[in-house]
Amino acid sequence: MSRIGKLPIKIPANVNVTNDDSTLVVKGQFGTLEQPIPKILGVEQIDGNLIVSLKDETRTNRSLHGLYRTLINNMVIGVSEQFSLTLILQGVGYRANVQGTTLVLNLGFSHPVNINVPETILVEVVQNTTINIKACDKEQLGLFAAEIRSWRPPEPYKGKGILYSGEQILRKAGKSGKK
């Protein structure tokens, strides 16, 4: 039995969970998320907790047990609290702003970079160089942040680029001069 899979998931008061045969739907104040559940797993709600149970004990089923328990836990946390990420633009002249549903980045290219923001994601720009991203779906949040970061990943010589908050860039020495 998976150690993570057997842990119960506490359901907050403002979250509603419904379970069909193959789909789990979680509704909260920040949105609604759906997750298809394999037939080898059973999800039951007991005393304000969700318990993910395994019907057949094999190696791959045990790994799916822990995976789906974590996915369901992330759904519950997302619709009740929301996930957030902070990106920092580090470099001379790097700026960001939001125009409607488009994130406009000036990253030293000859043209501004326009990225369409999905409707389930909230983007806020603070002081032109800090981008706060919030969403209830952790997977979509990470994919969108990675898409933004892919335009200017941090480079190891000067440390310029788009960094996650709290990220440390290992710096290289560069060229050593003549001696």
Results as ranks from 00 to 15, higher is better:
I88S: 02
L85H: 05
G93F: 07
E124S: 05
V117M: 06
I88F: 02
I115A: 05
L85K: 13
H111M: 08
A135Q: 02
Y94V: 00
A135G: 07
Q127A: 06
Q99C: 13
V123G: 03
S110A: 08
E81K: 13
G93P: 02
L87R: 02
R69H: 15
I77W: 09
F109V: 02
V76E: 08
I115W: 04
L105Y: 03
V79L: 09
I72E: 09
L103R: 04
N114M: 10
L107N: 03
T129E: 05
T120W: 12
Q90V: 06
Y94H: 00
N106Q: 09
T70F: 13
N116D: 14
N74Y: 13
R69C: 14
G93I: 05
V117S: 08
I121N: 08
L87P: 00
E124T: 08
V92N: 07
G91F: 00
Q99L: 15
S80Y: 14
P118T: 08
S84K: 13
V123S: 04
E81Y: 09
V79Q: 03
T86Y: 00
Q90E: 07
S80E: 14
I88C: 03
N106Y: 08
T102M: 15
Y94M: 04
I72D: 10
N74P: 05
T86E: 00
G100N: 12
T130H: 06
I131D: 01
R69E: 15
G93C: 04
K134N: 09
N128D: 12
G100S: 10
P118N: 11
I121W: 10
V79P: 01
L89D: 00
T120Q: 15
L107D: 05
H111G: 02
N128E: 14
V123L: 05
V92A: 06
P112Q: 09
N97V: 10
G100I: 12
I121A: 12
T120N: 15
I72G: 12
H111V: 03
P112I: 06
V113S: 02
I133A: 06
V113C: 02
R69G: 11
G93L: 03
V125C: 13
P118K: 14
N132S: 04
T102S: 15
R95D: 10
S110D: 09
V79H: 04
Q82I: 01
L87T: 01
V126Q: 13
T130C: 03
V113N: 02
L71S: 12
Q90L: 09
V125A: 13
R69V: 14
L71D: 05
L107V: 10
L107M: 13
L105M: 09
T129W: 01
H111Q: 06
I115P: 01
N114G: 05
N116Q: 14
L71H: 11
R69F: 15
G91H: 03
L105F: 05
G93E: 07
L105N: 01
T86H: 00
